[in-house]
Nucleic acid binder design. Structure first.
Lengths: 156, 156
DNA sequence: TGTGAAAAAGATTCGGC
DNA sequence: GCCGAATCTTTTTCACA
């Protein structure tokens, strides 16, 4: 199977393995092996295959930003003057550490971004001094996440 | 330090360790140790402390949904009839596997959700048959992500 | 907090089925 | 595709600075 192919087939055992690792990337393979009744070597083989299929794009430690004093999460819809501004705007947004995601979107805005700030004050500074300062940005609409109830990956 | 405390201080070594693990949760501790010139035991100690501080909320395998045929990512703003509908609506959304995130937000909508579908057809079915069918949902606004240029965590 | 060394556990390879 | 055994690496613990 070529890397990045979009016709990967996974069976029930693959799903079980992945479900374990999606919850905790450091789950020992041997522990998974014991829990699903297969040898560690077999799981190792399957993981190698899943990896080369491009389905596994890596693993991440998840840190809780709240503990570092970052508790304001928001989405910002951005209107750009000209479509031409897009690539430059994205380049500028990449340099803003508070920006976690950036999407070109259909609909009202040119761009939708997700930002993480310490508090509302920080968010206001971010909007006024950094986002609005980007060339091409004409207007923004901000949606603060008061509470996030769901946060998960694709279900297998 | 209590679990979940919001006054955790981390030093440069902690940051180096976390930066490694945020990129790849399975990086061996000893490899990190070699790269930053400290013993593996010391890193182990620091990780235990960071964990009990609540800063580390786990680790995840990241899978590439595109390889499974899921290539349409969208945000949907949802208007609810009455504020009272919120908890029930969230409960209903939890049962919809396509919903990856769900936020109570300030602004126009009651709720903003992120969904992952195979294609636009699937997204349309999702909207018509599942989202609109939820009690309390009066109207929705959909923003399809044509391209995601930035996807990252808080920068340390 | 850190270290080095020892012990325990896990990852990886490989021949064989 | 899977297994088991052998080997190598990593994790974890602990006494000590």
């Amino acid at each position: 199977m070529k890397k990045g192919s979009n016709s990967v087939k996974i069976d029930g055992i693959d799903k079980k393995i992945l479900r374990h690792l999606m919850k905790d990337a450091r789950t020992p393979i041997l522990e998974i092996a014991r829990s699903i009744g297969i040898s560690g070597a077999a799981i190792h083989q399957r993981l190698r295959k899943l990896e080369s299929s491009g389905l596994l794009s890596g693993s991440k430690f998840v840190i809780n930003p709240r503990v570092l004093g970052y508790s304001t999460l928001a989405y910002i819809g951005i209107y750009l003057d000209r479509a031409m501004s897009n690539p430059q705007a994205v380049k500028a947004l990449e340099k803003v550490p508070e920006v976690l995601e950036c999407h070109y979107t259909t609909g009202n805005w040119s761009i939708l971004i997700k930002v993480l700030c310490r508090d509302n004050e920080h968010l206001m500074q971010l909007l006024n001094k950094k986002i609005q300062a980007i060339e091409g940005v004409s207007r923004t609409e901000t949606f603060i996440s008061l509470d996030q109830q769901i946060d998960r990956q694709i279900s297998l």
